[in-house]
Amino acid sequence: MQTRTIGRTDLAVTEYSFGTAPLGGLYRACPRDVAMATLDTAWQEGLRYYDTAPWYGFGRAERTVGDFLRDKPKASYVLSTKVGRVMRPVPDDRVPDYGFVDPLPFDVHYDYSYDGIMRCVELSHARLGLNRIDILYVHDIGVYTHGAERNAVYLRQLLDSGLKALSELKASGAIRAYGLGVNEVPVCLDVMRAADLDCILLAGRYTLLDRSAVAELLPLCERKGTSLVVGGVFNSGILATGPVEGAHFDYMPATPEIAGKVGAMMEIAQEKDVPLAAPALQFPLRHPSVASVLLGTAKPESLRRNMDLARMALPEDIYPAFEPYTLVAPALGSDAVRQ
C-alpha cells in the first residue's frame, strides 16, 4: 500500500489506516477474539497505521491494539493515540454510559494542560504496554464536544501550556508528530492560528457529502504544511447505506434534506455502475494535504469489503457530478468559538 508523509516530518503512514473506536465497544460489544481477528485482517490488507484513544472503551481499545502490535517489528507500523481525557477508576456501579458497551471501570476527567497531557501519555503507555507512540492528537477539544463556556476553559489550557507539553515531547523524541483529533473545523482554525501542527485527525468534515473543511481549513493546511487524516468518511453511515430508513448523518437520524442529497448522489453512482461507498472512501485522498483515510470497524468482513471499495477503479468524471449535492458549512473564527 502506498504511503504519504505526515506534515513536514519524516513519518510516513499508509493511505488507508485503522481506527479502533469499534474495538472499544462503541454502540455494540466487541469480544476480544473478534477484535484481534479484525486487527489481523487490517494487517493482512496492508494497513500499517493504527489509531486509538483512552476514550474508546475507557482504555479497552488501547489495551487491545497494544497487545496486537507488541510482537510486530517496531519499524513496521505507526501508532497514534490521544490526550485530553484522563481516565480515573470508579466503582462498577458508577461507570458512565457514553455509548460504549462493556467499558473498563473508569470515568473521564478532561485536562488539556501541560500536566494533564503528560499524565495522559504516561497512562497510555501503561495501557498499551508499549514504549512507543508516534502521533499524539488532542482529543475532542472544541464547542462540538464541550459547549462554548467549557471549551473556552479547555482551549485556554491547551494554548497556555498544553501545546508546550506536545512540543517538548516531540523535541525529546518521545513522539514524532502531534495535532488535533476532532469533529469540527472551527477549533482547528483557532489552534492553527496560534501554533503549527503536524496533523489533524478530522472526522466527518471532509467527505463526499460534507465539505466543511474546504473553504478555510484545507488552504490553511497547505500553507502551514499540516496533514489531514480523515475519519468518518461515511458520515455516520449514510454514504455507505444510502438514504434508507434509519440512516444516520453526523451521529443523528438523517434529515429529509440530507437524505435527498444522498439519494441524488446514489443515483449518480448507479449511473456510473459503482456503489456510492467507493467514491466516498476514495474522495479525501484526492487532496494533497490528506495523508490517510481512517477506517473503523469491528468486523473482519466489513474491513475486507471496505478495502475492496478502496481499490475499485472509478471514472474520473464521477466527482464533479456530486458537487451540486455537497454540504458546505461556514467555518467560524475564534471570536465565535469564545463567545
Rank of each mutant, 00 (worst) to 15 (best):
L197H: 00
R150H: 01
R156I: 04
D160T: 15
Y112V: 07
V121Y: 15
R150C: 00
V182H: 10
I135W: 02
L166A: 05
D93K: 10
D115F: 05
D198Y: 00
L202T: 07
R223W: 00
P91T: 15
T145R: 11
C188P: 01
R85F: 11
L209M: 10
Y206F: 14
D140H: 01
D115L: 06
V187T: 13
M118E: 09
N183H: 13
C120L: 08
E184V: 07
S113F: 04
R211H: 11
G99W: 06
I133N: 02
L155N: 09
V182R: 03
D190K: 11
D160P: 01
R85N: 14
T207L: 10
D198Q: 00
A171Q: 12
A148W: 04
V95Y: 03
E216F: 06
G225C: 02
K224I: 08
N131E: 14
D196W: 08
K164D: 08
P103R: 13
A174E: 15
G129N: 04
G147C: 06
Y154K: 07
L169C: 12
E184M: 10
G147V: 09
L217M: 10
I200C: 01
G179S: 13
Y144M: 10
L209G: 06
Y110H: 11
A213G: 07
A171E: 14
E168S: 07
